[in-house]
Nucleic acid binder design. Structure first.
Ligand SMILES: NC(=O)c1ccc[n+]([C@@H]2O[C@H](COP(=O)([O-])OP(=O)(O)OC[C@H]3O[C@@H](n4cnc5c(N)ncnc54)[C@H](O)[C@@H]3O)[C@@H](O)[C@H]2O)c1
Ligand SMILES: NC(=O)c1ccc[n+]([C@@H]2O[C@H](COP(=O)([O-])OP(=O)(O)OC[C@H]3O[C@@H](n4cnc5c(N)ncnc54)[C@H](O)[C@@H]3O)[C@@H](O)[C@H]2O)c1
Lengths: 212, 212
DNA sequence: CTTAGCTTGTGAATGATTTCACAAGCCCTC
DNA sequence: GAGGGCTTGTGAAATCATTCACAAGCTAAG
């Protein structure tokens, strides 16, 4: 398959969110222009994004909301559930473990791990926190595809190595440190301090950063 | 000033993080190549990023770690502290309010707000949660530059309108909904479900997404 | 059946970002 | 103070992403 830009995938996720709302509000079809407005982009961009994957609309008519939802879900790989483990049950790990926004999208938190004996055994939204020492055994059993790292920066690389060695194929890293993962493992980082710093840059150099 | 790409600013933030570590470990100078490795980029990219803002290195020698740190901090606008308010003291809002990673970068949480009377009055890392009704009055008094939104998606636009009307100039939105803000207000969104969806896409369409 | 009115899908053009490649500059040694 | 070895800073080239613009195709109405 051809190379798809990350920005395209990000927008598809946004379109899907809007399509779900739009469907709930009773609309049957939607045009690329309406979809564009929701995502802060242009109708040409919407059509181009979709065109990488096929042809989903009807000329003159637009897109059937329901069909397009299904198509985008399929493109993103959301027609099936994904199993997720969270490592680090501290402040951010606990918040994510209880986040409903994951479950509604088909991401199931099947395990939460911590090193601290005081946290082990506590329940987070139905899932018990388990000892970090059980990581390998549990991964072999539960076969989660995705690991979310919420451990301190010093521990992140070691945990990434362990979970990927044990078979996890994708990592979402919240620790503010760059991770090296083996070829073939998908990796993304969310760095909240960087987000604030980008805002600070925007405020300092008024206008140098294209406003979103 | 010329237009600076967001990707450049994001990398500068990363370089800065690495420079701080590098300085702590006793090194006095660093080359663009070493800096590149830390950020998963190339030496040419590092030099180009910096070249938008000036000339900071010595040919043959590289960059003085300390001086470059200071220069990047200045570029990003981090030589001065920024005041931040957090609206929504739920799971994610509480985690962010207690996050040390913000304070160490000069972002001071000067207020946390919630609508729920049960949360108002509780303390998060030294800051008391205040009633959301006091938002406008407090913004007038404390003059925070940045607002972090951790309220449910339905409430996010209304809160964004209120804080920007009251004088906040930048918004970091954690609610999974697109926000419209007036021209001149800097806005960024962190969407964790989208991050997982990008990983799901990567796992589904192995290789279609350039690995990071 | 034909026409009017929309909207898609997509090459081509434009614009933005990254990579290349090398002259210029600095330090160190001799 | 001249030469070797490195490394920066930066135009030019290449790649990548977005926007333009329009032919093609669908529906509905007459
Ligand atoms: N709190 C936030 O809002 C926030 C925001 C962005 C990023 N982060 C990052 O997320 C990470 C966690 O932050 P936090 O605020 O939740 O910290 P925290 O101290 O509340 O939680 C960290 C947890 O990780 C556990 N832990 C440490 N080493 C471990 C290991 N080897 N295996 C398993 N568990 C281990 C600790 O016992 C603790 O429970 C940090 O890297 C932080 O920089 C936090
Ligand atoms: N929990 C997570 O890990 C997570 C991750 C990503 C995004 N989010 C998003 O962040 C937001 C908050 O999520 P949460 O999990 O913390 O939910 P939560 O229910 O724990 O917290 C929301 C808080 O906002 C308060 N609130 C509601 N309306 C308000 C208003 N008008 N003014 C002030 N406060 C108000 C509520 O009283 C509550 O305390 C949601 O939009 C969610 O989708 C959460």
């Amino acid at each position: 398959m051809k190379h798809i830009a990350e920005s395209t995938v990000r927008r598809l996720s946004l379109y899907l969110r809007f399509l779900e709302e739009y469907e709930a509000s009773g609309h049957a079809t939607i045009s690329s222009g309406e979809l564009a407005e929701s995502g802060g982009t242009t109708s040409a961009q919407v059509r181009k994004d979709l065109s990488f994957f096929g042809s989903f609309g009807k000329r003159g008519m637009g897109y059937t909301v329901k069909d397009l939802s299904i198509a985008i879900r399929e493109i993103l790989g959301l027609q099936r559930p994904w199993s997720v483990i969270i490592v680090g049950a501290g402040k951010i790990g606990a918040a994510l473990a209880q986040y409903r926004g994951f479950t509604t999208r088909g991401f199931r938190v099947v395990g939460v791990y911590d090193r601290d004996p005081a946290r082990v055994g506590t329940k987070l939204d139905g899932v018990s926190v388990r000892p970090e020492a059980e990581l390998e055994r549990d991964i072999a059993k539960l076969k989660p595809e995705i690991a979310v790292l919420c451990v301190p920066a010093e521990a992140a690389q070691a945990i990434a190595d362990r979970v990927t060695k044990a078979g996890v194929r994708a990592v979402l890293n919240f620790a503010p440190t760059p991770l090296k993962v083996t070829e073939g493992v998908a990796m993304r980082a969310v760095n909240m301090a960087t987000e604030l710093e980008i805002l600070a840059f925007g405020l300092t150099n008024g206008g140098a950063l294209p406003v979103r």
